[in-house]
Every structure is written in structure tokens, then in C-alpha cells.
Amino acid sequence: MTASFYIHKESWLHRLAAGRKLFCLAVLGTGISFVSDLWLLAGALSLCVCLFPAAQLRLVVAYNQVRPLFWIMAALFVAKLFTGPLSDAFVVILRLCILVLAAGLITVTTKTSALLTVLERVLTPLSVFGFSAPRMAFALSLVIRFIPVVGQISQEVREAQQARGLGTNIFALIIPFVLRIVKMAEQVSQAIDARGGLPDAKPSPAVMRRSQAVRRSVSAPMGAETDQPH
């Protein structure tokens, strides 16, 4: 697993605040659903593609954004052919490509840490299921910290079951895996309590400092290749 999709370059798009970029994406996403003029859409698409070189990125990066969607888009195109005129089929595909490219552009030009900050800010007013924004931020860093550890456990479980000839048996693999996760949760939560407990629901200066540190850290590699065998 690689650290993140962020590609570091010095461009105005990289420097643009994450919040602004996301706002633009939201506007684009809403606006584009009202546009069905093929030429306008084609123009928007070319603009999106051109933004990649503008951000000092190679065009293959743009291609990589849409590549995973190739088959689903082909299926969609065919489905559209049966239900309406050819132009409609193109409109849908163009809209999707524009949005995916724009979103992908944000992903590759914005540090994970900057996106985390925006996420935290967006979540502040909503306290989802009793999960305040600082708690949410803490939980997110907890996940990032434990992905490599859990990956290690997954590997241990797999090796143990391979030794018994059950290397692909879903039950032999997942049941002990889940059990180890729950058991580990017990110990991790004891450790957190022993170290003073969860961060306060409202941010204290110390927590703010900590979450700034988190922001700096997520751009560091998280799951080393060796922890995630394929």
C-alpha cells in the first residue's frame, strides 16, 4: 500500500487551499448536472485535462484517474444507447469523466493532512452519533496508526492457516482475524485509559497541537510495503 495519492509539485493548484478546491468541486458537481450541451461538456473536459499539466503533472496521471472506471463506463454507455439517443450517452460519460478528473486532480494536488483539516472543519457542526470532531480526528489517526498493525496480524493469521492447508478458507482466515482484532481493542483501550484517556470532546490547546502533528504525519508513509503482502 502506498502512502497516499498525493503527488508533490510546486504549482498554483498545489498551493490553492484545500477548502477552496473542494468548494469548486461541489459547485462543479451541482452545476454540471444542468449542462447537457455536448460542446460545452467537451470544453469542460479538455479544461480538466489541461489542469493536470498546469499542475506540473503528466497526462498519464489524468488517465489513471479514469482508467478504473473504464468498464463501468462502457457498460453505462451501452445501457444509455438502448434507452435514448446517442448524444445522451455521450453527455453522461462526459459528465462522469469531468467529475472524476476534477476530484482526482484535488486528490493528487492536495496533501492528505490538508484534506483531514477540512474534513474536521466540515464535521465540527455535526456531532455524528455522539462523535465530536476532535474525537473523529483522533479515531482517524488511530485507524492510520493501526492499519499496518492490523495488516501484520492479517499476515500472521494467513501464515498460520496456510501451514494447516486452510490458506484460502474464508472461515479459517476471518474468524481468528476478527477475534484478534477484538482482543487487541481491549488492550489498546486499556493502554489509552492508562495514558490519560481519550482526548476531550472539545479541543484543548494540547489536542490542537496534537492534531496539527497528525496533519503533518499523514503525509509520511503509512503502510509499508512489507506489511501488506499481496
Binding site: 479515531a139 482517524l140 493501526f146 492490523v150 496480524i153 476478527v178 482484532i181 481493542a185
Partner: peptide, 16 residues
């Protein structure tokens, strides 16, 4: 604490 940790570890589990 325990709930928070379980929530986070299950997210990590799903990623794994």
C-alpha cells in the same frame, strides 16, 4: 474508550 478503539480497529480491519 473501548467503543472508539473498536470502531477504529474495525475500520483498519476493513482496510486490511
Amino acid at each position: 474508550t473501548r467503543d472508539t478503539v473498536l470502531v477504529a480497529l474495525f475500520a483498519a480491519f476493513t482496510v486490511a
